[in-house]
Design a protein around this nucleic acid. Structure first.
Lengths: 236, 236
DNA sequence: TTCAGAAAGTGAACACTGTTCACTCTTGTA
DNA sequence: TACAAGAGTGAACAGTGTTCACTTTCTGAA
């Protein structure tokens, strides 16, 4: 039982925190290089010169440790796309950069990003109620990063650039899905970006830009005057 | 050493094939319900009343077995989106249905789909040359499903609906990324589709349609006459 | 300063996992 | 009928995450 007040932080507390930090940083180092499969408790224990069971005095389980790595990653990601979205540039450039930064950051730390979306809770059909409530979600780093996207959409609508009939939250989710998909494909299919029939040099960065372009285009205000947020020529 | 000719198929061959089939179908049953983590060799052996080591007489490794499940899944997926894209309906409806079918099929068999994109070969930075050559790729079910998307894009361009300045392969990849992303989010985040601030009923199906709409909109021929395949108002 | 109690750390063990290998048993063929 | 190839097995190996009784170390109060 220790108080939350830092003024009452004892040497023992600091020592404990330092060991905890050493575990995390070793885990971070191994995880970034080899991912979840390369990170075993025994190996981690070896690296920091403790016994495997010692780690359980600091983390309840391996999953709990990895959750902390993922959370830290999403905090960095949040900071990055927040920076992109608030830079001093024309709106459409910022919007594109926001998507591109998201994908780029994910690809830079493939194991972190992949791990953050690797657990399937879908298995049990009875998940009733709310394992994913709005209020609970928006407080997480992941949720806040999503919030940046929502703000971007509403800003685009206020600037009369994006289709005003779109629900900003839904549009942001669509945008998120699009960015997430490219990140995943780039991570899980090496050289996805240069998958073309002809010999044609194409960097990942270039393709990310292209994709961001298309994503944003889908949100643009229709110029044919209908502006109902639906595809032309459909009647259902 | 057995010949490929089915006419020379011996009873032993048929017996072997039957056992092999029983392994696959048991694996399929368990995998669909509990995924890769629920599928252990020992459990599989129990289910089919063989010893664990017997399974290695039919499959080189657990991964090899799972690869077969994934390949079979993608064959089903290919058939489905191929059906969607060639149905007798207006082009834009078919295009939308194609994307929607892809996502829907993925979500129906979450473990299969997730597993198909779960291995990270990205780890080693030196993957030079071609682990993912075009010719090699298009012969796989995954590759053929991708081919359907490419055809769809070119058809849209021929019909003067899609932006003709877009590279069809790149546009198809972007479309794939968008569909893949939504599928992944729906699989890995339960109730992603109803993640909204207000109380507002929204089925996964509805959101899939919405997303497909936006994806397709990004490919539409710009109506402002520029038609250069880039966002308006950018100069780089 | 002493001493109880709470932490920190440990080693062995448990219940798993995928995989291998020497072995037996069955089967088809010459 | 004999023999070889293949099918099937049980035990073992090297891992894994995790637990628990145990010892050691530290700290705060008497």
């Amino acid at each position: 039982m220790q108080t939350d007040s830092p003024s009452e932080e004892t040497p023992a507390d600091r020592r404990r925190l330092r060991v905890r930090e050493s575990i995390i940083s070793a885990a971070e180092r191994v995880f970034a290089k080899e991912g979840e499969s390369g990170l075993s408790i025994r190996r981690l224990a070896d690296e920091i010169d403790y016994s495997p069971s010692a780690i359980y005095k600091y983390f309840g389980s391996k999953d709990e440790l990895i959750d902390e790595l993922k959370e830290a990653f999403f905090e960095r990601l949040l900071a990055k796309i927040d920076g992109s979205s608030s830079a001093d540039r024309p709106f459409l450039q910022r919007a594109k950069a926001c998507v591109a930064t998201y994908v780029d950051t994910a690809v830079t730390r493939p194991f972190h990003y992949a791990a953050a979306f690797s657990s399937i809770k879908h298995a049990l059909p009875e998940n009733g109620g709310g394992p994913l409530s709005w209020d609970g979600f928006v407080t997480t780093s992941k949720g806040q990063a999503f919030g940046v996207l929502i703000s971007m959409v509403t800003e685009g609508q206020e600037l009369d650039i994006f289709d005003p009939s779109l629900d900003p939250v839904m549009a942001a989710k669509s945008l998120w899905a699009g960015s997430h998909g490219l990140a995943q494909l780039l991570i899980h299919m090496p050289h996805f970006h240069q998958l073309v029939p002809e010999e044609q040099p194409m960097t990942a960065k270039d393709f990310i830009e292209f994709h961001a372009d298309l994503q944003i285009r889908g949100l643009l205000k229709p110029t044919d005057g209908s502006g109902n947020g639906r595809l032309p020529g459909q009647n259902s």
